[in-house]
Write a protein that binds this DNA or RNA. Structure first.
Length: 471
DNA sequence: AACCCGGAAGACAC
DNA sequence: CGTGTCTTCCGGGT
């Protein structure tokens, strides 16, 4: 069943893509008809800002605001703004909520908002400007974020948002760490928060029926319909999820245009995952700017990373296509998801079917990825730091920050299961068993929330956590 | 029945 | 060849 001759929709550049190939490419290469490729890679938004425009939005004059808006129009292919509605200085502009912006420029409000947020935040980070009023939830987290203060369920709002945006940009840049695909929007692109954010953008294209197969039925023979996978779906069950507040509507369709390179500060080595890692894949679908996959998977609360797999079978199918394992099903895919529990990338939302929660924001995950790479490179002899850390951290970690800062340095399942294919647990002292993957094991088993509820409470309005821990 | 869980072993790409 | 990341199976629990 590795036969895959996906028949891509024919069209201009839609010849068949030979597989294997980065499936995501498939996903992302043949996205919605309308979906324009991200304009210019926002490799460095700031750098691309019109000359003379202060990097700190709150310092902009009315004229600057106009310049900025014009720039946005061009840069993000946004509809022309009614400048009359933006007779204000930068400070005022920054005070506008996403909704406000959305009212002034339908369809582009979120983009503007996001861009502004990024700029403000950048300014804050760089110049240490007092935290922005625009980004109340933003913790002046240094970038890259210091994991240290991160509880398991970070409120990704700003961080994630920010970084994720860059992801998209990255997509346009060859050596970005990220995803090939559709510029995933950040994970906190900041929808209003709290609710399932899955509605089709107002202008969502009529959709391709393509992957419908995948979507609703899990039991197709895997080859036929896959072929048409191309245009990512809007599965039949259009918006079957409870719809969120109207205002939030169509709020996140174009985040991808607001990417920022900070996501890849400098030259983070490429991770090459390109959506080939399950979490990455999920993130991409979840953050798809055009919300094409909301019938498969959608955020329930983006801020806390809680998402729901709306169509398990369909999603599994997509994943299978992505990985070229056409016999993929939810059972198998969910097994992969469960492996993420150990490394604290995910956790199950108790009591809610098909609901999981990301315990780390995209940035962290990326970093983890990179760390992994580094480790690989320095592979044989590394051990030291972690080794040391382990003993001391074990306890505290278990109790306070199940998912913490030092990031799980290794996503390897094998790593988290040192005993696997290695020494039997009973044959050697724990200390040695883990020699190579201590941290992993540590974060894996010891930090798994299973027993400890602690962390979430205060910092994150995480109910889930407690639920689980109560057991 | 459909989920969910996690062990075990193997595949596969890098 | 080792490692990382699943994939595939599976028995067991809810």
């Amino acid at each position: 069943m590795k036969v895959v001759s996906l028949q891509l929709p024919s069209g201009p550049s839609m010849e068949r893509l030979p597989l294997p190939f980065s499936p995501t490419e498939l996903l992302w290469r043949y996205p919605l008809p309308w979906a324009p490729p991200p304009p210019s890679p926002l490799g460095d938004t700031k750098a691309q800002l019109p000359a003379g425009l202060p990097p700190e939005p709150r310092l902009w004059t009315r004229e600057d605001v106009v310049v900025f808006l014009k720039w946005c129009e061009r840069e993000f292919d946004l509809p022309n703004f009614d400048m009359d509605l933006f007779q204000m200085n930068g400070k005022a502009l920054c005070l506008l909520t996403k909704t406000d912006l959305g009212e002034r420029c339908p369809g582009a409000g979120d983009v503007l908002h996001n861009v502004l947020q990024m700029l403000v935040r950048d300014a804050a980070l760089l110049g240490r400007v007092p935290s922005s009023p625009v980004t109340p939830t933003a913790r002046a987290a240094p970038y890259p974020p210091s994991p240290h203060s991160h509880p398991p369920t970070p409120t990704w709002s700003v961080d994630g948002f920010h970084h994720f945006h860059s992801a998209a940009a990255a997509a346009a840049q060859p050596n970005s760490v990220t995803l090939s695909p559709a510029p995933s929007v950040d994970s906190s692109g900041s929808p209003q928060r709290g609710e399932i954010v899955n509605y089709a953008p107002a202008y969502a294209p009529p959709v391709p029926t393509a992957v419908q197969a995948a979507s609703s039925g899990s039991n197709h023979s895997d080859s036929d319909e896959d072929g048409q996978f191309a245009p990512p779906p809007r599965s039949p069950k259009e918006n079957s999820l409870p719809s969120p507040a109207p205002q939030t509507h169509a709020v996140q369709h174009s985040h991808y245009r607001t990417q920022h390179r900070e996501f890849f500060p400098n030259d983070i080595p490429e991770s090459n995952t390109n959506g080939r890692l399950l979490w990455d894949f999920l993130q991409q679908l979840l953050n798809d700017p055009t919300q094409r996959y909301t019938n498969y998977i959608a955020w329930k609360n983006r801020d806390t990373g809680v998402f729901k797999i709306v169509d398990p079978a369909g999603l599994a199918k997509l994943w299978g296509i992505q990985k070229n394992h056409l016999s993929m099903n939810y059972d198998k895919m969910s097994r992969a998801l469960r492996y993420y529990y150990r490394v604290n990338i995910l956790r199950k939302v108790q009591g809610e079917r098909h609901c999981y929660q990301f315990l780390r924001n995209p940035t962290e995950l990326k970093n983890i990825k990179n760390i992994s790479l580094l480790r690989q490179q320095m592979s044989p002899t590394r051990v030291a730091p972690q080794t040391v850390v382990k003993s001391e951290m074990k306890e505290e970690r278990c109790e306070e920050e199940p998912v913490d800062e030092d990031m799980p340095t290794d996503l390897s399942m094998a790593a988290s299961e040192p005993w696997r294919k290695r020494a039997r647990p009973d044959t050697m002292p724990v200390s040695t068993q883990h020699d190579k993957h201590r941290i992993s094991a540590l974060i894996g088993d010891n930090m798994i929330p299973k027993r400890e509820p602690e962390y979430s409470a205060e910092n994150y309005a995480l109910n889930l956590r407690s639920e689980k821990c109560e057991q």
